[in-house]
Amino acid sequence: MNKNRSMFLISGLAFGFAFLYIPILSLIIFSFNESKLVTVWAGFSTKWYGELLRNEQILDAAWLSIRIAVINACFAVALGTLAGFALARLGRFRGRTLLTGMVTAPLVMPEVITGLSLLLLFVAMQDLIGWPAGRGVTTITIAHITFSMAYVAIIIQSRLSSVDESVEEAALDLGARPAKVFFLITLPIIAPALISGWLLSFTMSLDDLVIASFVSGPGSSTLPMVVFSKVRLGVSPEINALATIIVLLVAVGITIAGITLNRQEKRRQRDMQMAVAANE
């Protein structure tokens, strides 16, 4: 490759990654700052981590958010898998276009609109059938499941479309029932996609401010809502400490997941190749 050209590309990459990572690095560095004036360095200290761990409001909100995120991720994976499977494997069923639309629109829909529309639905439902009674954890969870399952559906659909259908067909030809084929063949094949779908749903729920603000009720402030109300008043080293913890957890989680999935994928491909080779 031409030397100038590769220099240009490398500097483009370097600039881009610097842009993506410098803010995160500065968050982490200033979480260890002694001074309360987040951006003026006054010596190394871990006292803000201590403050964070004593802040009941943040801890309560974090615990609430984690509970919502776990329930959300489980439901979103179940519903999203069904939707992704339907789109990838069931051909042209009635209403397919609408389902495709309802799966892709939440990916780009501005959050203020999703939040407002769900709130109006919940208010109307409460009027009509008395459920959900008031707003809180239940309504936040339902709202999160709705957008998370769309992401899961896309992930599962694309995974299934890239995997050879012949193994499933072979099993069906040999008389296995569809449900059996799904549980024993399809599910293990899409396992990596299920895991990434679960993790993505979990983090998106943990991260959502706008939609949760619309559909939450008194006494159900999630972590992003508490963080937002603090951050609006200005920078606070406790929030830097929180951010550092989250970034570390995510980095470790993603790296482990990435390595494990990569290894599994390689093993699966090798097994498939060996199975083919052994019979040729």
Partner: peptide, 13 residues
């Protein structure tokens, strides 16, 4: 994957 809100917050600093 890291919090969108916190990444926006980073820019304030």
């Amino acid at each position: 994957w890291t919090s969108f809100l916190l990444r926006v917050y980073a820019w304030i600093g």
